[in-house]
């Protein structure tokens, strides 16, 4: 491994470690029983098969949103629309699940396709606005999240809400649409396979197709892309569409994999997590799997801790923010890098 890659890895680890230390510090500060809090936070997720299952279940949607964000970040697009896509595509899939009657595998495929299609449309708009008119993709995507959340809520409340059950939920989806459980004693569903296949496809797309190449070069250096004759407008739109499809599929898979009714009363937050996953994964599709597992692990750990002690699980968000700040801080560990670089040069000289 060359020096730069090794340094990047060290930076990532340092950022994660600092955030974990911060997490422990918070626990020590506010917890009445700090040791057992830390115990549940760190060890909790591996205590039971069910908990390990929880980690993997949570990693599935995170992989999708991570992948979508990887593609966007590689194009230098700060688009957080995966959040709204997750919500609305999930709803679309649920509607297909409730309303259509189709045989088993086909029903799920149609539901997922509906989710992917919606994600594609929404992200296409954001990408088009950016590529054509340079409209801030960040602000527009965040507005879109709120807009489609509102529209989704309306559709749900007026047409698909089940008045007979307490709480907020749609009518029951038909059994044919639900994804099969693949590991007993957990809720891990066949969405895991779809997620892993998507990782592979996203890798092939980004690194082995001409669109992927154009997208990446556009993201790294737009002047170079234009000098080479690439159409950067097109590259931005294609990247947005690809990210939209992936996050749309992610939302659909999550809803028909984990639930039998649509139950999101608020934006699920899974799309936003894509930003952290992409940064931890250094924008590499394959690494999103590990980054998603890591985030899922500390989420489940924090949940268990919250259940057993008095520490709210939102502690994880604070850690997440610290990781993003440090990893994206170009000068973070710069002194160390300079020193190490000098050593490296001397060694080779």
């Amino acid at each position: 491994m060359n020096f730069e890659n090794r340094f990047e890895l060290i930076r990532t680890f340092a950022a994660v470690t600092i955030s974990l230390i911060l997490g422990f510090a918070i626990i020590l500060l506010v917890s009445d029983e700090p040791l057992s809090s830390i115990y549940y936070f760190v060890i909790g997720p591996v205590l039971k098969t069910r908990y390990i299952g929880n980690v993997i279940e949570l990693a599935i949607p995170l992989i999708f949103s991570g992948l979508a964000t990887v593609i966007l970040f590689q194009t230098s697009l700060f688009n957080l629309g995966a959040e709204g896509v997750f919500y609305f595509s999930g709803l679309m899939a649920a509607i297909v699940g409730i309303g259509l009657s189709l045989p088993a595998p086909l029903h799920a495929i149609v539901a997922i396709a509906a989710g992917g299609l919606f994600g594609m449309l929404l992200m296409f708009m954001i990408g088009y606005f950016k590529a054509k008119w340079n409209a801030s993709e960040l602000v527009i995507s965040l507005m879109f999240n709120s807009i489609f959340y509102g529209i989704g809520l309306y559709i749900l409340n007026y047409f698909f809400r089940d008045p007979d059950i307490a709480g907020f939920a749609s009518f029951k989806m038909q059994k044919t649409v639900l994804l099969a459980n693949i590991i007993p004693k957990t809720r891990i569903h066949s969405g895991l396979i779809i997620a892993l296949v998507t990782v592979l496809l996203a890798y092939l797309f980004l690194y082995r197709t001409k669109w992927g190449y154009e997208i990446r070069m556009t993201g790294i250096n737009g002047d170079f892309a234009r000098y080479s004759g690439m159409n950067t407008t097109k590259a931005i739109i294609i990247a947005s569409i690809a990210a939209g499809i992936i996050s749309g599929i992610g939302g659909a898979v999550e809803v028909i994999g984990m639930y039998d009714r649509f139950r999101w009363a608020a934006l699920p937050g899974l799309g936003f997590d894509g930003a952290l996953i992409a940064m931890l994964a250094k924008n590499k599709p394959g690494s999103t799997i590990y980054a998603a597992l890591f985030l899922a692990y500390i989420r489940i750990g924090a949940d268990l801790m919250a259940r057993m002690t008095n520490i709210p699980s939102e502690m994880v968000f604070i850690m997440q923010a610290v990781i993003i700040l440090l990893i994206s801080g170009g000068k973070f560990l710069e002194k160390y890098r300079q020193k190490a670089l000098l050593r490296e040069v001397k060694k080779n000289a």
Partner: peptide
Amino acid sequence: ILGGIALNFFANGG
């Protein structure tokens, strides 16, 4: 932008 995004995460959770 990433700094701003992180700050918003921080605020939400914090």
